[in-house]
């Protein structure tokens, strides 16, 4: 529920992060700012620091230098307990789904509703919200199943439902389509766009596929027809502004709009766009 669209939701200031076992920084001088209601696509090859960047954004990893602001609060010096309150405003889909194998799908999706600080819902309300969240990804019939009984694509969809069940204003997706076939990947992207446009969330998506970024930037979910449609510049039909960023070996080598990305002369960026076929 962003009051003003100018509000900065996430900001990195010259962030540096080095793992003890790494020979170069995983994040090297990253700076950017993301406004409420905007979408952001972060692209890069494997090992370029995409996942590290997302984990740093919510304080799961601490940078060695620089500052990270989440909802205007500086999180680098925060304790884990203080972070819990801020993380309650962020939904995350992990690369592998991050579903708990010992819990059913219902318990998995209900987890943030039951465990996040300040979230004390009665059981029937939790159940209602879980069913509603799963309905949005068309999996409301899998409540009693365990994650191991679902396919890879379905697990990602459950992950999307769990990330959005508390209706957080910011949602982070870590490679939501990695390792999936093109048809399932397209379906997953459809659900991400649907979540974004029905709840007006600020969305950050990490991916190595330009097609996914293209879909997020060019398509919107029409709540009246219930379908995805190409965003136009007409009133009410335009999707949220989308920024693109490209990471290379921990460094931000590009930041800008889709037009700027496609016009970029940088050989790494060009190779990226070409190899995945825009």
């Amino acid at each position: 529920m962003p009051e003003t669209h100018a509000e900065t939701v996430l900001e990195f200031e010259d962030v540096l992060l080095q793992f003890p076992e790494g020979d170069r920084p995983a994040l090297d001088g990253i700076s950017f700012a993301l406004s409420a209601g905007h979408s952001c696509v972060i692209m890069g090859a494997a090992g370029s620091g995409k996942t590290v960047l997302l984990k740093t954004a919510v304080g799961l990893l601490k940078p060695d230098a620089g500052r990270v602001h989440l909802f205007g609060e500086e999180i680098t010096g925060m304790t884990e307990k203080e972070l819990f309150h801020l993380r309650a405003k962020v939904g995350i889909l992990f690369q592998e789904g991050g579903l708990f194998d010992s819990l059913t799908i219902e318990e998995n999706v209900a987890y943030p509703l039951v465990n996040q600080p300040g979230a004390h819902y009665p059981p029937e309300e939790v159940h209602r919200r879980v069913v509603e969240a799963l309905r949005l990804v068309e999996l409301e019939r899998t409540l009693d199943k365990f994650p191991s009984e679902l396919s890879g694509g379905m697990r990602r969809r459950v992950g999307i439902a769990r990330a959005n069940v508390t209706e957080p204003p910011l949602v982070l997706y870590d490679s939501p389509t990695a390792g999936l076939d093109p048809i399932t990947a397209h379906t997953i992207m459809g659900f991400i766009i649907k979540e974004r446009d029905t709840k007006n969330t600020t969305t950050v998506m990490v991916t190595h596929r330009y097609q996914d970024g293209n879909l997020l930037a060019k398509y919107r979910y029409n709540q009246v027809t219930g379908r995805l449609e190409r965003a136009t510049s007409g009133a009410g039909a335009a999707g949220p502004p989308t920024r693109f960023m490209v990471l290379r070996q921990g460094k931000l080598v590009f930041e800008g709009t889709q037009q700027e990305l496609e016009a970029s002369a940088d050989s790494y960026v060009r190779k990226f766009l070409r190899s995945v076929g825009g």
């Binding site: 799961l60 992990f94 943030p112 465990n115």
Partner: peptide, 17 residues
């Protein structure tokens, strides 16, 4: 196994120590 499948990160992200 929980660590390598990011379940421990998920736990921290979802408000549990």
């Amino acid at each position: 196994s929980m660590k390598v499948t990011e379940q421990i990160d998920a736990m921290r992200a979802l408000g549990t120590d």
